[in-house]
Nucleic acid binder design. Structure first.
Lengths: 385, 385
DNA sequence: CGGGATTCTGGAAACGATACCATTTCAAGA
DNA sequence: TCTTGAAATGGTATCGTTTCCAGAATCCCG
């Protein structure tokens, strides 16, 4: 009954009439044979295509005997349903697309992982693509995913203000949710962290420590998220009547060392640094070490965004932690809510930190709270981790 | 099994006859409308479907006038070809699948990024899935990708020795390339790093430094790659007549601290540690710091696998670096070589480090070299980075 | 201006799975 | 035994695209 077809090493996979040829002698397995189709299974099992279809979709309304027989044939032939045909027929591809700046970025890959878990729970496949923060590649990826008829899309826009993307998203025929960065001026749902509040709170924390000259190192500052953090920092220092000092020059270790050295040699040297992204934090940390500046005694350091080794290095680095997995998870959940229709009249969203109005119903704009992780570099937790 | 078992609770996603309903009044844009089809474009442009098909495939053999007109209609209607229908017809999906343990793992996500670049260069989409090192999920992902009719597959097997996966891969009808970890006993091509040689060389380096009691901390030790590294370590210490001491107990910071403390208090304390994976290196580093053990004066440290902050922490950590991007790139290239047939008679593979026989033609088993990055923790580069 | 060679063009048959709907089977009650 | 409904099953149109093949339009030169 095991009428496995096939032979190995076929140079021409062309549609020869060898669908049922016997196994070739010299190769053990059925490599390179054309995959079996549903109707072949049906013929082999002596049933109709409908029955086979029912079997692979759960076996409802099929007699146990037939069910077993068909299952056996499926197993023997190594049959796998052709998604393409399925998709073409129905209107659900069970596929959602994700566009992030980079797969290798720990922040986004963690989001992606969380989103994939949700997708899997909803019996869907997540396709991850990288835009490298290039609006052009981003649009290209968008087109690819649309071509593949993704049921829905998650996107972390390279440019929150770009009209091109906004217009494109608005005329899309599938639901879209923006992740980490909103699409300004558009109606697409979004899940973001409260960068403003997180940065303000962190700055306030430094102020409470007694630091008077808190300088903010932005790194690349064009992104929406960074802008928000700058706003937060500004709000805090201005409320406290301190100086608002921004340094946007740090791009690598060298520029960090140069910038910090100049500032320390200047008239009004900083007693604390607030860095707005991971790489900047690391560059600044490295530079401070190199310049033999004691942390936090001479200069304190607090960074936005946590990273694996922040607690390992000496001194450990205080950070504002974002709810990374939650961003991915909630975004995906929001998307599936849209996908499954307005089935659930009250979608309540739990936020990262207890902080007052933490539930919103049918929220299309979800804002997640950050958490301050005080470690040694800001003056907290002087000795151990 | 496949998605066969599925959810029994199907809430009936009805198929209403709402294909062409007009846009709801309260929404500004043409959201939720069914995407245009090729034949609609054809009708709109007053041509046959064949012509439209030709236009979207490059516009060969179409008169300039018709070409322009059809292109205009396509633009106006926002038409995107339906991949599913395309795939169903032809036999190329322009899609390849990648199965890795985790998306969030920096090593694998970098591989994935490199592989995606190659895929894109070959006009294909890379679908990344995570197995979490679980053979069961791995098989499930495999089935999903096969269902989606991926043209080819890249897999970093959770278990190099598992017969289930091997058999499955051998009867697959698409080319497969194993990445980072081979599939033992199978004929599938593979791209791996030379873990044995890398570990042996690193151990030799420690021996040349004069360390006499080199202990190897494996962490989780069941993976093929770790086993190879153990072999390399063993070969080096035995060749030098030193003791072969393995510690497989380290799982987290706590166990690292306990293990290291005990060893140092023991009869024959180590003067160097060789850690076989990232997390173990970090745990050991942290523990040494905590125990106030001077690195490398009291105990040297050398880790397998590089990570971003290895050069930033004090002392900087010496490591064996793997050619991460190259692994991803070469694997994908090998896959596309298979995909495009035996078109290129001599596929030469460049290896990471000049080291003798670095080219192999038509290599189905590619081995890439590691590189030793000596930093402070092994006794090299005593002061600066 | 006419023949043949191009170049364009469109009709219709696939591709594989699904779902409507019609048909058959079967068991139990009358 | 006949009726009757439920359960099991299969035929077939359909999804949107490509491709084969044939037919129509156009061109080039003698």
């Amino acid at each position: 009954m095991v009428g496995i077809s096939g032979c190995a090493v076929r140079l021409h996979w062309h549609r020869l009439f060898v669908r049922r040829e016997l196994a070739a002698p010299h190769r053990p397995m059925t490599k390179r044979s054309r995959p079996a189709t549903l109707s072949e299974v049906a013929r082999e099992a002596g049933v109709g295509t409908t029955t086979v279809s029912r079997v692979i979709n759960g076996g409802e309304r099929v007699s146990p005997k037939t069910l077993a027989r068909v299952r056996r044939v499926i197993e023997a032939m190594g049959y796998m349903p052709n998604q393409a045909a399925r998709v073409l027929k129905g209107d659900r591809t069970k596929t959602i697309g994700l566009i992030i700046p980079s797969i290798a970025d720990p922040f986004f890959s963690s989001c992606a992982e969380a989103a994939q878990a949700v997708a899997r729970a909803n019996d869907s496949l997540l396709i991850v693509t990288a835009s490298h923060n290039d609006p052009h590649i981003e649009i290209e990826n968008l087109n690819i995913l649309i071509s593949h008829r993704a049921d829905g899309l998650i996107i972390a826009p390279a440019n929150s203000r770009g009209p091109a993307l906004r217009d494109m998203l608005d005329r899309l025929s599938v639901p879209v949710v923006a992740m980490d960065r909103p699409v300004q001026g558009s109606s697409v749902a979004s899940v973001v962290t409260d960068n403003f509040k997180g940065a303000r709170f962190a700055t306030q924390h430094l102020i409470e420590h007694g630091y008077k000259h808190i300088v903010c190192l932005t790194g690349e500052s064009t992104l929406f998220t960074i802008q928000e953090r700058i706003r937060g920092y500004r709000a805090a220092v201005e409320a406290a009547g301190l100086n608002y000092v921004l340094n946007t020059s740090i791009k690598d270790y060298k520029s960090a060392e140069y910038a910090i050295e100049s500032m320390l040699a200047g008239a009004n040297p900083p007693d604390a640094l607030f860095t707005l992204k991971n790489s900047t934090t690391i560059f600044a940390f490295e530079a401070l070490q190199k310049l033999n500046v004691a942390i936090p005694k001479d200069v304190a350091l607090l960074g936005f965004d946590d990273f694996e080794l922040a607690s390992t290095v000496r001194p450990s680095i205080s950070v504002v932690q974002q709810p990374v997995e939650e961003i991915g998870r909630v975004t995906a959940e929001l998307l599936f809510d849209q996908l499954l229709g307005t089935h659930n009249a009250s979608v309540t969203v739990s936020t990262h930190q207890a902080g007052g109005t933490s539930h919103s119903r049918r929220a299309q704009q979800v804002t997640l709270e950050t958490r301050l992780i005080p470690r040694a570099s800001c003056g907290c937790a002087p000795s151990t981790t």
